[in-house]
Design a protein around this nucleic acid. Structure first.
Length: 873
RNA sequence: GGGAGCAUAGCUCAGUUGGUUCAGAGCAUCUGCCUUACAAGCAGAGGGUCCGCGGUUCGAGCCCGUGUGCUCCCACCA
């Protein structure tokens, strides 16, 4: 078979993914082996995968494939999340744009039909991308958070928590999204610093000409004021005790009250109390028995209760209120003021604090075991230091979780009300009736709200194995707790912490043993990826352009554990080059077997044996390093180690060392060994770059096994001596090549090489390779040539390059003198150390000994250089 | 306001218990090469006050203190 000039990713990807799938390699069923379980962080069915997913999925696939090759029974469960609010918003948008249908014209059922169609479409796109990336997920286990069983699990969980007294319904101040028209949890609100204005407004004291001035950012809420409040210790306002003030615009009279909450120093020291629209005001209102006047509608327009600007949007109303106050002369001054404003994570609209009746989960009792499990080390977080404090702080200060959403897309809250609004909770209406002893004459209607999306995803590691709906099943008992969770650090509270809570509560076990947090993917300027910046590349396009292996390589090589990843297509380019390099190594090796004399020479020569022994040792060393790095989740460094092993050690050194002279054939033994090493390299690379490695594995040899299912060898001891010998050889080669470069001797300019040395080094094993690698006509040991030659010092050996060509000895001298100066400085610092009595007394003996050896080495090198300089005259 | 993390070559980052040439890697740059696997390549090279200051120590990139700068998380001061 003739091999193409370069690796063709597209055909290999299609071929091998289908092959693996058909062979059932991705599929997992419980057996006697140790399980290695991963559950994919289910992507939202709102759209397509972005670079963050790509990073995440790649990391998981590397871990999965690595574990599979280490003998584990790997199960990686794929799936997607219904993403209640995000998807509903997208569907509403689509309906309006594409079909000109408004949500309010649809019934719940028909809306859900559209939503499920949406899910089919985008879920399919996501799964296709996961496949293109090469992810070895078990496709028989695809789970969606609105599957029937999953839906049941969520409902079951709700009922169980309710019956445990951990879920309650009540009117509280919550975060209201005026665009999606739903409540949000605290976590769904993002705060941003915004430059605003502080308005100083005069309120007239009733029955006097006196005014009090209050500072507010939200003059449009003045109509909801029910009091003004000062600090009881504030001399300036003490005389107002028992008085009332008139609220501007609506001219309502409200009391002056006193509360130590008010900061005397801030603004004017007087606060307006608007319980419906500010959490602090709400609390003060409660303490002082004040009424609540809600002046906003659910869409953010002013309500009837406002009396003025009714139906006007809150921001427009603010402008008009300011205008109004200014005209009436009640606006004393305006000043710039920066404050933090909450925005909805999904609709990006300004969140409105609002009193509303919602469902909540009591978090305190759930938090304690979740915190303990991490603190006692049962769950390990990587990288540890960075997130442990954040995790702990959140759990220790956790607030109740608002879980009801005024949406249709999601699990509908299993609560029913009779005509007197009495509440019945049950897994179904029938179950609720039975539980509460209601007969059919009582008519019930179900709560309209659905549950927060995270109230379903917190069950993910359990319910993908039906652990909630059927806790006694074999899969669940075998695969759960899962092994490692790989996810973005941005959802540590939304998801990770809550999964741990749910795990501890519902299974009594942690949901996973390790958590690996990936950083955020940014562009190469450090900016967040976003559609508006146009810096968010399309995954399929990248795969098309570079190949899946190159994409995986590129994203992993620049991905330090836990840090943000600055995505740069240059690293994908690097990945593509690497693929090509591997491909060309394959071509070279294959070429050797095509030589007409191939097979006639069985045995290796000494130099070949040296090369193969060395590479075998090198391979073992690297494999041990890589295993260690992967165990520590330092995947980027593991990949760098492999990259350097393949490119530098295998291609640049080893293959050149064993390359047969022009026209001659390689020995069979060397060839066979080389194939074995190549196999080993493929094995090490496979988790990172599955397609090209599988492709080459099959080109190298006609076999019925597949690389993906081969097992890594158990470790042997690394032979150290030969590694040192090879380093010595490399340094001689490099020094000679460097000398050629410096003294303008073309690479093939004939030279004879003389090596002068005092040490008892063995050159027999390496001289053949050395001669070949530096294009020397001959190598003379422990002798020096007559006449002129280029002299170069390599450690404590002196090399002479004898050539016909005229050589500029001046340049040589400069170079030697530079080296000499450095060494002399080095010697002084060592002498200083050794003549320091405290050092000699206090340092460990081996350290002192080492310094003595360094000194001796330096002296010898200096001696060599000085001799050279002398001979140069 | 509270907390966490970071600062090492032009860029992105390694650097484990303080001690081996410890000052490293990749990318980028420069020089020379179209050499029979690969120019998507080969062979070499240059490049750093380890953020500043102070301390501990025989010895600090590493430990302690402090200052500066950056990033992130949390928090109800109008």
């Amino acid at each position: 078979m003739e091999l193409s000039k370069n690796f063709d990713p597209a055909s290999a990807e299609e071929k091998w993914y289908q092959h693996w799938k058909q062979k059932g390699y991705f599929k997992s069923v419980p057996d006697k082996r140790t399980p290695f379980t991963l559950v994919i962080p289910p992507p939202n069915v709102t759209g397509v995968l972005h670079m963050g997913h790509t990073l995440n999925e790649t990391v998981q696939d590397i871990l999965a494939r690595n574990a599979r090759m280490n003998g584990y029974n790997v199960c990686w469960v794929p799936g997607s999340d219904h993403a209640s609010i995000a998807t509903e918003a997208k569907v509403v948008d689509m309906l309006k744009k594409e079909k000109n249908i408004s949500k309010k014209d649809l019934t719940r059922e028909s809306f859900l039909k559209y939503a499920f169609e949406w899910k089919e479409k985008y879920g399919g796109i996501i799964y296709h991308q996961i496949e293109k990336l090469g992810c070895s997920v078990d496709w028989d286990r695809v789970t969606f958070t609105m599957d029937d069983d999953y839906y049941k699990a969520v409902i079951k969980t709700f009922v169980s928590l309710y019956r445990d007294g951990l879920i309650y319904r009540g009117a509280r101040m919550i975060n209201w999204d005026t665009v999606a028209k739903t409540a949000l949890s605290d976590e769904e609100v993002e705060y941003r610093d915004v430059q605003g204005t502080l308005y100083y407004v005069k309120y007239q004291v009733v029955g006097s000409n006196e005014f009090v001035t209050i500072a507010t950012q939200r003059p449009e809420t003045i109509m909801g004021d029910v009091a003004v409040c000062a600090n009881p210790d504030d001399e300036r306002y003490r005389h107002l005790k028992g008085k009332k003030v008139t609220i501007p615009m609506v001219n309502r009279m409200v009391p002056v009250i006193f509360d130590s909450y008010v900061d005397k120093e801030f603004g004017t020291g007087v606060l307006k109390i608007t319980p419906a629209h500010d959490i602090n005001d709400f609390n003060i209102g409660l303490a002082h028995n004040l009424p609540v006047i809600d002046t906003l509608n659910e869409d953010g327009t002013l309500s009837e209760a406002a009396e003025i600007f009714v139906g006007v949007d809150r921001f427009e109303a603010r402008k008009r209120a300011v205008e109004f106050l200014r005209e009436k002369g009640l606006l004393v001054k305006e000043e710039n003021y920066s404050s933090r404003i909450g925005y909805s994570q999904r609709t990006h609209s300004v969140v409105e604090p609002r009193i509303s009746t919602q469902w909540f989960v009591k978090m305190k009792d759930l938090a304690a075991p979740a915190l303990q499990e991490v603190q006692n080390g049962n769950i390990r977080i990587h990288p540890h230091e960075k997130f442990i404090a954040t995790y702990q702080y959140w759990l220790e200060n956790v607030k109740d979780w608002c879980i009801s959403r005024q949406l249709w897309w999601g699990q509908r809250i299993p609560a029913w009300y009779d005509e007197e609004a009495n509440l019945y909770v049950g897994e179904s209406e029938a179950e609720a009736r039975a539980k509460y002893g209601l007969n059919d004459s009582v008519s019930l209607r179900q709560d309209n709200d659905v549950l927060d999306t995270w109230f379903s995803s917190w069950l993910w590691p359990m319910q993908v194995f039906n652990g909630i709906t059927n806790p006694e099943n074999e899969d669940y008992n075998y695969y759960y707790p899962t092994t490692v969770l790989v996810t973005g650090q941005d959802i540590i509270f939304f998801w990770v912490a809550r999964m741990i809570m749910a795990g501890m509560k519902f299974s009594g076990k942690k949901p996973f043993s390790d958590v690996y947090f990936t950083g955020m993917v940014r562009d190469n300027l450090g900016r967040k990826m976003s559609k508006s910046l146009g810096n968010s590349p399309d995954l399929l396009q990248l795969i098309h352009e570079y190949g899946a292996d190159a994409v995986r390589f590129g994203i992993m090589i620049s991905s330090p554990a836990g840090n943000d990843l600055l995505f740069d297509e240059a690293s994908l380019e690097q990945g593509k080059h690497f693929n090509n390099k591997i491909w060309n190594a394959l071509k070279l090796i294959r070429m050797w077997s095509n030589h007409s004399d191939f097979g006639k020479i069985e045995k290796q020569e000494a130099s070949e044996l040296f090369a193969t022994d060395w590479f075998e040792a090198k391979l073992r060393e690297a494999r041990a390093d890589v295993n260690e790095l992967i165990a520590q989740y330092r995947l980027s460094e593991a990949l760098k180690t492999i990259y350097s092993l393949v490119w530098d050690d295998f291609c640049s050194w080893y293959l050149e060392w064993i390359k047969p002279a022009y026209g001659t054939s390689i020995s069979k033994d060397t060839y066979e060994k080389t194939l074995r090493y190549f196999d080993s390299l493929l094995q090490m690379m496979h988790p990172f770059m599955p397609f090209i490695t599988e492709e080459i594995y099959h080109i190298l040899d006609d076999r019925d096994t597949d690389l993906m299912m081969t097992q890594n060898p158990s470790e042997g001891k690394v032979e150290n001596g030969i590694l040192k010998d090879a380093e010595h050889l490399k340094s001689l080669i490099t020094a000679t090549r460097d000398a050629r470069n410096k003294f303008k001797l073309q690479q093939k300019e004939p030279i004879a090489l003389y090596i002068e040395t005092n040490s008892a080094k063995d050159y027999t094993k390496i001289s053949t390779i050395l001669q070949k690698q530096v294009f020397a006509s001959a190598i003379h040991l422990n002798s020096r040539p007559e006449g002129n030659a280029v002299q170069v010092v390599c450690g404590n050996e002196k090399l002479h390059l004898v050539t016909e060509k005229e050589v500029d000895t001046g340049e040589q001298k400069d170079q030697l003198q530079k080296d000499l100066a450095y060494l002399k400085g080095f010697l002084i610092s060592i002498d200083k150390k050794l003549s320091n009595e405290k050092f000699v007394q206090n340092a460990k003996p081996e350290v002192v000994e080492l310094e003595r050896k360094k000194k001796a080495d330096a002296l010898e090198k200096i001696n060599v250089i000085e001799q050279s300089l002398k001979s140069l005259g």
